[in-house]
Nucleic acid binder design. Structure first.
Length: 505
DNA sequence: AAAAAAC
């Protein structure tokens, strides 16, 4: 079996890999690293969780280990669709470059330009960015991309979903023709195919998804509910969620609850907290410092339940989530696959449970069609929801309550489910000897537990305070460095298929 | 119909 030491990586990079506890590359790493080191373009088709971040980080660092950056002219560029993803990639660079003298900058929105400008001015070897902020810097004349020797596009299919493709094309056109391009996508949509044909030259194509075996480690289920009264629909749904969580008991070590809308993320998180659960929200309207803090806590095991919009559905490297709860049925069937893909990773078992209202049944059917598989129906964990309680006629007359449901409606009613919340936060210790990539145990570095005050729904609060969230690496201790969670052959088979394949059958 | 990402 191939070892990292067989791959011709720079010795100092190799040393950092060993110190991080890794020995054997995942399939995508074994496939992508050699051609990348030869200077070839690489087209990597792989899901998150397959170790692709290290698949481009390691060869890049090796290639960049010689030479020095000039002011405002980064030597390499990594583009990511979300801020969190970019921050993760940056952590990877920190981990593996600790014995090299390379500089990097993280250019993401939501934080001030100042720090970022300073770094760029000094010259960086590695620039990690989300497209919007990168172009912003460029337009202000602060940045030249003509020195880029290596460019990485990460999660290209997600970039496509988010409408970033024009930006990506523009950025491509700002970099030299001679650059090396490493391009990663989970699927090959026609539009992605077009981009790769245009901007990659004779790429080495590395595809790992297909090799996955059929072992399904994600246990799925759905609860069909029907509100007993329309004006109670939301609170009843939250009660069902709590009952589902309670029903899992100790088995639920940490979980992500997905909602379709940001407002519901806030409401559900707040309701859970109020009921004694250790939960916090994350979505794009929260300011960046809070997003970062919440995610860090969740990773460190200091937060048990992350209530999230689809900002967290893909790409986030959250290790070993035991449960995913779909509070809402996602309206794009693809999103379901990405959401539940947050659990059952790295060979661990995972459970994904969803709540489905009558009005969601169409979307639900689309999911089952995509999966080509029936999702087992679970009995409602709450007695009255969905049962035969007669519907009050008055519910009809009442003007629908304005969407903001006051929290007093939340906790009162169906408290039949045992209320003792699973407060016991059990930071699960991962097994120590995964074959592909061991998982360094994350150490909380700051315990500051401010309670996320998630009221703010004002628009435009994107610009957080400066000075956080750029975890620019200094002082990250050695072995706690960041992981690429390996999984190799423990992926449910349907995840391994492209969406087209799933549709076709 | 919603979320994400630039100010």
């Amino acid at each position: 079996m191939t070892k990292f030491s067989d791959l011709n990586l720079n010795p100092k990079v190799l040393k950092a890999i060993e110190e991080a506890g890794y020995e054997t590359p995942t399939p995508i790493q074994a496939g992508a690293i050699p051609p990348a080191l030869e200077g070839r373009d690489v087209l990597g088709i792989a899901q998150t969780g397959t170790g692709k971040t290290a698949g481009f980080t390691l060869p890049m660092l090796s290639l960049l280990s010689r030479g020095r950056a000039r002011a405002r002219m980064p030597r390499s560029l990594v583009l990511c669709p979300t801020r969190e993803l970019a921050a993760q990639v940056a952590e990877n660079f920190d981990t593996y470059s600790k014995h090299l003298k390379l500089t990097k900058a993280l250019l993401i929105g939501g934080v001030s330009f100042k720090e970022q400008d300073k770094l760029i001015d000094k010259g960086v070897d590695v620039l990690i960015a989300t497209p919007g902020r990168l172009l912003d810097h460029f337009e202000r004349g602060k940045l030249l991309l003509t020195g880029v020797q290596i460019m990485v596009v990460d999660e290209a299919d997600r970039m496509l979903d988010m409408g970033f493709i024009p930006d990506i094309e523009r950025i491509f056109s700002l970099t030299p023709f001679t650059r090396q391009t490493l391009f990663f996508s989970a699927t090959m949509a026609p539009e992605i195919e077009r981009i790769t044909n245009t901007f990659l030259s004779a790429p080495a194509r590395v595809e790992v998804a297909r090799q996955a075996t059929a072992s399904e480690t994600i246990e799925q289920g759905v609860v069909m509910i029907k509100a007993t009264r329309r004006d109670r629909a939301d609170s009843e749904k939250r009660a069902v969620l709590r009952a589902l969580i309670d029903g899992e008991g100790e088995a639920c070590t940490n979980a992500i609850v997905f909602c379709n809308r940001k407002i519901d993320v806030d409401v559900v998180a707040k309701s859970l907290k109020k009921n004694g659960y250790d939960a916090a929200p994350i979505h794009g309207d929260l300011d960046q410092s809070q997003r970062t803090r919440t995610l860090d806590q969740f990773r460190a095991g200091d937060l048990k339940i992350l209530v999230a919009s689809d900002v967290a559905a893909r790409g986030l490297d959250v290790p070993a989530v035991s449960h995913v709860f779909n509070y809402d049925v996602p309206s794009h069937a693809e999103d379901y696959v990405h959401r539940i893909g947050r659990t059952g990773r790295a060979g661990r078992s995972g459970k994904a449970m969803m709540i489905c209202n009558p009005r969601d049944e169409k979307n639900f059917a689309a999911i089952e069609a995509l999966l080509q598989k029936e999702i087992p129906r679970l009995d409602s964990p709450v007695q009255s929801a969905g049962s035969d309680t007669p519907v009050e006629a008055e519910a009809e007359d009442k003007p629908a309550k304005p969407s903001r449901s006051r929290s007093r409606t939340v906790s009162r009613k169906k408290a039949d489910a045992p209320q003792e919340a699973p407060v016991e936060v059990q930071a699960e210790t991962p097994p120590e000897t995964p074959k592909a990539e061991p998982k360094p145990q994350a150490k909380p570095q700051d315990k500051s537990q401010d309670k996320p005050q998630d009221r703010g729904q004002e628009r435009n609060q994107g610009r957080g305070r400066s000075g956080d969230s750029g975890r620019s690496g200094a002082g990250r201790g050695g072995d706690q460095g960041n992981k690429v969670v390996g999984m190799g052959d423990h992926m449910p088979s349907f995840i391994a298929l492209s969406f087209d394949e799933r549709r076709v059958g």
